[in-house]
Design a protein around this nucleic acid. Sequence first.
DNA 1: CTTAGGG
DNA 2: CCCTAAG
Length: 612
Amino acid sequence: MVLHKRLDYGSIGYQVPPMPRVPRSAKGKRSIRKKLDNKQISAFDLLATVAGELLSERENSLPQCKISGTVNPTIKQEQQENEMPFKAEVFDQGSCNESTLGSESAFKRQISCKLEKPSQTLKSLEGKKGELSSIAMKCDIDGKVEIGQSGPGILEDPMDLDAKPPALVSSDSSVKVPISRSSSFSKSRDKNELVDGDGDENSSWCTHPCTDAAKAFRLQRIGDRRIRKLLASKIWKVPPKVLKDGELSNNDVQMKTVFGSKKMCYTRQRTQRSPFKRRKLFEHRPISVAVGGIYGEGIPKSAKFGGLQIERNDGHAISKSSYDSGDYHVKFTIKSFKVPELFIEIPETATVGSLKRTVMEAVTAVLAGGLRVGVLLQGKKVRDDKQTLLQAGISHKDKMDNLGFSLEPNSTQAPPPPLISPEDPNPLLLSNPIQRISAPVPVIDQMLPETLPEQPQTSTLNSPESDHDSGHSHTEASSSVDKNASLKALVPVPDMNSDSLAVIPSRKPKQTELVQRRIRRPFSVAEVEALVQAVEKLGTGRWRDVKIRAFDNAKHRTYVDLKDKWKTLVHTARISPQQRRGEPVPQELLDRVLLAHSYWAQQQAKLQSKPN
DNA sequence: CTTAGGG
DNA sequence: CCCTAAG
């Protein structure tokens, strides 16, 4: 079975506009490359490039993704020690059968996350400056996010890989191996998969010795090609229109065009009879990306960066003259990514799996909900998108160790990508008793390179830009502390059990906090089938019963959801097949919908006219 | 908390 | 999906 439309969500009214696609025509590439070559790229282009890197990969979403970061609630220096590195991994379990593939969101995945090395921060994992290791980031609005640190493994020189001091790798369990969509990944995944929060630092992919074959494969195929792809397709995919002349202030609009217009919201699952009150979870605080530095022309042409970069078009051997004319290129690598302050609230009775899912959901919601990229130079946000890098002060020759990128949740919009479906698509088979809880999206602040330790970690919050983001960061001061404490408590118990969860403080978000909209989870055919069956039996006025009968184990489906779904089903059944969107529902089911609908409508009418 | 509907 | 008035 093949996924039909990536962005077509079943229910009407939630269609997320398709991401504008830009033909990967040579022409397009050339034009942009030309701009790069001529240093004509504006700050906004740079932003867009980064954004594109992060968000325009929806078409190539990988069924697996990893996110690593540091829980860093407050961006204050003194809290550095409280930073809790965490890692959330999600990957396809490989069992994509008919039912699990019913819808894109139906991918059954297993998520695992680890909290480890409480005192370690991603920062400490950064390779030495100049080291050609970088972080590869990919994120698409489909909910797949990939953020992996690509070390020398993707470099052309295999020696680097072997020569790389294990310390760097092992010391940082949150460092990810570059995740490529190539089969090489799946090959090596087997041995590395199911990284369960067992505390085994070596369980992360990067620390697992890759097989020679896999290694070779990766080096050979991923290296150059992957980078090229990253540079070429992803970046170029961003519609020029969107990139051009956008004011930072217009970013919202611009990005909206790209990511959809729905407001980004994420709320914790409302669980039937859940003892937990709905909370406002996500903070729309900026996520920051630290850049390893800007590399000037001195960088060997063979140098490869796995992450974002503006690469000199070596294919067109830059002539001496071009250099003379000031045709320099700014090169940089985003080495780390922090996902701070993830506020998690979860009942003690929840399963570890649910915790993992929650974390993943929280992170995914933020990343996939729509991001805006901000460029920070020495802690200051570069607002003028029209500026060229040079004008902005980003020069190839500068030792810009202070270039930062901030990923800011787009509060004004957010095409909630189908999040991972923890449960089996078939409601009748659902058996996961997880209690979904809230997961706030934290703010991630800029992580500055070690060379600029003095840079206040609060730069992002304090920077002028914080104004245009959902700014509610400050209301979190106290919460961050709680969070820290709670997460910290989790660390010692990688294999946390419910008890450890109890440590999590249930700080009540302020009412002023925004409530994230729940992520969309298109109903799979299996679910529709179950729904139809239940309604046929129970009628259309007993949603709670329907819920219990057919979706008791699908915690993410509330009776209201079911009622709404039925509503849309009825509508869908009435419109022409051409007008339907999302995963097609078998006509047979739609027929039953209409039948049941009319039948129960009659019954209701009878009851009305003839009460007793 | 459930329903029922509009948004 | 969200929000809410009603029951």
